[in-house]
Simulated scan of single mutants.
Amino acid sequence: MMTKNSDKKREQMIMLCMDDMVPKNHMLRLIDKAIDWTFIYELVEEKYCPDNGRPSMDPVMLIKIPFIQYLYGIKSMRQTI
């Protein structure tokens, strides 16, 4: 139901920085600093076509997702994302 007060809520906007939401000493930040993930691009370079097909997902992200699932015992891709 529309009321006068609901219009005021629509005008509110919160700006959040994802970096500020994760503690500086979080385990995943420490792992990300310890591992240079760029080697994955070289390993999968020949598997991707540069000029044909849909844009691909970042291969590093495709490696990090199952890594996070393993660390936290998450069985669902949807729950991980």
Rank of each mutant, 00 (worst) to 15 (best):
residue 74 I to T: 04
residue 38 T to E: 11
residue 32 D to A: 14
residue 47 K to N: 08
residue 77 M to Q: 06
residue 63 I to S: 04
residue 2 M to T: 15
residue 11 E to C: 06
residue 43 L to M: 10
residue 13 M to A: 15
residue 19 D to C: 08
residue 43 L to E: 11
residue 56 S to W: 06
residue 72 Y to K: 13
residue 53 G to C: 04
residue 23 P to S: 14
residue 1 M to E: 13
residue 17 C to Y: 08
residue 50 P to E: 01
residue 77 M to R: 05
residue 55 P to I: 02
residue 57 M to N: 06
residue 80 T to A: 14
residue 7 D to N: 12
residue 64 K to L: 05
residue 32 D to V: 06
residue 26 H to N: 14
residue 12 Q to S: 10
residue 35 I to N: 01
residue 60 V to W: 00
residue 33 K to C: 06
residue 15 M to A: 12
residue 33 K to R: 13
residue 64 K to M: 10
residue 17 C to F: 07
residue 64 K to W: 01
residue 27 M to H: 07
residue 35 I to P: 00
residue 70 Y to R: 12
residue 3 T to D: 14
residue 69 Q to V: 03
residue 45 E to T: 07
residue 48 Y to K: 07
residue 18 M to S: 10
residue 69 Q to N: 09
residue 67 F to K: 00
residue 38 T to M: 04
residue 40 I to W: 01
residue 28 L to K: 01
residue 43 L to I: 03
residue 17 C to R: 12
residue 43 L to N: 07
residue 56 S to L: 08
residue 11 E to L: 15
residue 22 V to E: 05
residue 72 Y to R: 12
residue 28 L to I: 14
residue 58 D to Q: 05
residue 56 S to V: 11
residue 81 I to Q: 10
residue 24 K to P: 03
residue 13 M to S: 15
residue 71 L to V: 11
residue 38 T to H: 09
residue 65 I to S: 05
residue 23 P to V: 06
residue 77 M to Y: 09
residue 73 G to K: 02
residue 14 I to K: 12
residue 35 I to A: 04
residue 55 P to L: 10
residue 57 M to V: 11
residue 47 K to T: 06
residue 51 D to N: 13
residue 21 M to P: 00
residue 36 D to P: 05
residue 26 H to Q: 06
residue 26 H to C: 13
residue 56 S to R: 10
residue 81 I to E: 08
residue 15 M to K: 13
residue 23 P to C: 09
residue 11 E to D: 12
residue 44 V to H: 04
residue 26 H to G: 04
residue 58 D to K: 02
residue 68 I to P: 01
residue 53 G to Y: 02
residue 8 K to P: 00
residue 1 M to D: 13
